[in-house]
Amino acid sequence: MRAERPSLVDPWPLRIIAGLLIFAFVALFLALPLWTLFAQAFAKGTEAYLRAIDEPAAWSAIKLTLTVAAIAVPLNVVFGLAASWAIAKFQFRGKQLLTTLIDLPFSISPVISGLVFVLLFGLQGWLGPWLRAHDIQVIFALPGIVLATVLVTFPFVARELIPVMEAQGTQEEEAARLLGASGWQTFRRVTLPNVKWGLLYGVLLCNARAMGEFGAVSVVSGHVRGRTNTMPLHVEILYNEYNLTAAFAVASLLALLALATLAAKAALEWRGRTEIAS
């Protein structure tokens, strides 16, 4: 009997068709828009491009975006580490519920995430009168934007870490404890180094989303030019004012940021693979 093993390599026509499809998809949905973006941004020359960026409202938007990311990302790193550590290393009641709740921001529209905060902290909201009495402004100010960003981006770190930590089990931690390490030493010297690549990757994704978030932030920011406009909001305003060069110039900055994130991610993955292989 001649038992021929089925070929694991697809026949060549299929490979060509699949290759063409992928190429067309990448060209149509990624390369072309990106090229248009930069072409539009530089349509009136480099000088116009720089002028569009070097402008108080643009600077303020850039600063606000960086500030929000600088607050939201560390918060989510702490939260993500705590949540994934608890979920992966311990058994407790409500674990399934917690896992589901972490995914919630992925499944609800960011606009709703923003609205929730308006309903909570807005003037007509639940805590509105109390906040006003104490002269604290959340909505249409930095705290509101940070809150909305944190909510929208909080699954990224935890989602990245939970599978990594679960795969590693708890034996190394047990070994560390028996060798005399305290809980903190065990976390810092054993748990954390074991998940560092996953953590970095989660931070990158979280950061990209924090800087690019539009929907939730749009609801809570109030679009006060020069004060509560983040970069994505600023782009939208410029676009609505038919100031296309400026809109695309600022947008190109965001796109560069995304490209840098992708490059860093690829580098991390390469680094992670070689480390495992060594």
């Binding site: 190394e172 070994a175 560390a176 028996l178 005399g180 305290s182 010297r189 180094p193």
Partner: peptide, 20 residues
């Protein structure tokens, strides 16, 4: 405490710290 017990434990699958 676990530290003061001074137990030397060898796990079935060794549980060596893989990053060290």
């Amino acid at each position: 405490s676990l530290r003061d017990r001074r137990v030397g434990f060898v796990f079935q699958h060794y549980a060596l710290f893989r990053h060290m």
